[in-house]
Simulated scan of single mutants.
Amino acid sequence: MADTTDTNTQDTAEKKVNPWLRAALEYGPIIAFFVGYMLVRDMSFTVGGREYQGFLAVTAGFIPLQAICTFLLWRVTGKISAIQIATVVLVAVMGGISIWLNDERFIKMKPTILYVFFFLILMFGILRGQSYIKMIMDHTVPMSDEGWMIITKRLAMFFAVLAVLNEVVWRTMSTDMWVNFKTFGLPLAIFVFFMTQSGVFQKYGTDEDKADA
């Protein structure tokens, strides 16, 4: 009876929401950023006597949009992850600094800081013999502790690589290239990473859900 109650509690912890609505709230801001940038990248805007290029103008709109969509996602699902909170905070801080100093470099550094943060958090857990990824995904993807530690170690290294890659792209390539990399390259890389880990999920996966049923 206790196991059933725990399972039911976990099932109701997050409200069911239309997957299209979830996708729109999660990916809408970055898509809007890309579209907005493509429309105004060659334009400049004067606000308060200061001239801002199109990239920073779009950044100014992206900050509240990201915050609003994250808030709405929390309202419709009933929960919010630490990753989402960290993303919103960094967007607000780094985007705000970019606009304040009229310097686009700071918002371009945001992915680097975010991925380094994830790397450090995961490594801290690994050193303590814990998988923080398991805490987030275990109910969705049942797997043994050994499997979760393998995924966690690989993901930590993957985040480190992404941080370095972002630094290389924004420091050596054009803003157009960085925007394309941020909009399409990073999400694709994360998707490919998890696809290539399917063998680990299959090898170390458990049948806890079937046993409970």
Score class of each variant (00 low, 15 high):
residue 41 R to A: 15
residue 41 R to T: 07
residue 43 M to Y: 15
residue 43 M to H: 14
residue 44 S to Y: 02
residue 45 F to V: 05
residue 48 G to K: 06
residue 48 G to T: 03
residue 48 G to H: 07
residue 49 G to I: 07
residue 51 E to Y: 02
residue 51 E to F: 05
residue 51 E to G: 04
residue 52 Y to N: 13
residue 52 Y to V: 10
residue 56 L to M: 09
residue 57 A to P: 04
residue 59 T to A: 02
residue 60 A to E: 01
residue 62 F to C: 07
residue 64 P to W: 10
residue 64 P to K: 10
residue 64 P to Y: 12
residue 65 L to Y: 00
residue 67 A to W: 05
residue 68 I to A: 11
residue 69 C to E: 01
residue 70 T to I: 01
residue 71 F to M: 11
residue 73 L to R: 06
residue 74 W to K: 14
residue 78 G to F: 11
residue 80 I to T: 10
residue 81 S to I: 01
residue 82 A to Q: 07
residue 83 I to L: 15
residue 83 I to E: 09
residue 84 Q to T: 13
residue 84 Q to D: 15
residue 85 I to W: 10
residue 85 I to L: 14
residue 86 A to P: 07
residue 87 T to A: 15
residue 88 V to S: 14
residue 89 V to P: 07
residue 90 L to Y: 03
residue 90 L to G: 04
residue 92 A to K: 05
residue 93 V to F: 08
residue 95 G to P: 13
residue 97 I to C: 08
residue 97 I to L: 13
residue 97 I to W: 02
residue 97 I to V: 14
residue 98 S to V: 08
residue 98 S to M: 10
residue 99 I to D: 03
residue 99 I to M: 10
residue 100 W to N: 11
residue 100 W to T: 13
residue 100 W to R: 11
residue 101 L to W: 06
residue 101 L to H: 13
residue 102 N to H: 06
residue 103 D to R: 04
residue 103 D to K: 00
residue 104 E to S: 15
residue 106 F to P: 10
residue 106 F to E: 04
residue 107 I to Q: 06
residue 107 I to E: 04
residue 108 K to F: 09
residue 108 K to L: 09
residue 110 K to S: 03
residue 110 K to Q: 12
residue 111 P to Y: 00
residue 114 L to W: 04
residue 117 F to R: 00
residue 118 F to A: 07
residue 121 I to K: 06
residue 121 I to H: 04
residue 123 M to R: 15
residue 124 F to E: 06
residue 125 G to L: 00
residue 126 I to N: 15
residue 127 L to Q: 12
residue 127 L to H: 12
residue 128 R to W: 03
residue 130 Q to P: 06
residue 132 Y to F: 14
residue 136 I to N: 09
residue 139 H to Y: 12
residue 142 P to I: 02
residue 142 P to S: 07
residue 143 M to I: 03
residue 143 M to A: 05
residue 146 E to C: 09
residue 147 G to D: 02
residue 150 I to Y: 06
residue 150 I to A: 08
residue 150 I to T: 10
residue 151 I to L: 13
residue 152 T to F: 01
residue 152 T to H: 06
residue 153 K to L: 10
residue 157 M to Q: 05
residue 158 F to G: 02
residue 159 F to L: 12
residue 160 A to E: 13
residue 162 L to G: 01
residue 164 V to P: 03
residue 165 L to W: 12
residue 166 N to C: 12
residue 167 E to S: 09
residue 167 E to G: 08
residue 168 V to I: 15
residue 170 W to K: 02
residue 170 W to N: 00
residue 171 R to T: 13
residue 172 T to Y: 12
residue 172 T to R: 12
residue 172 T to D: 09
residue 173 M to G: 04
residue 174 S to C: 09
residue 175 T to E: 02
residue 177 M to W: 05
residue 177 M to V: 08
residue 179 V to P: 03
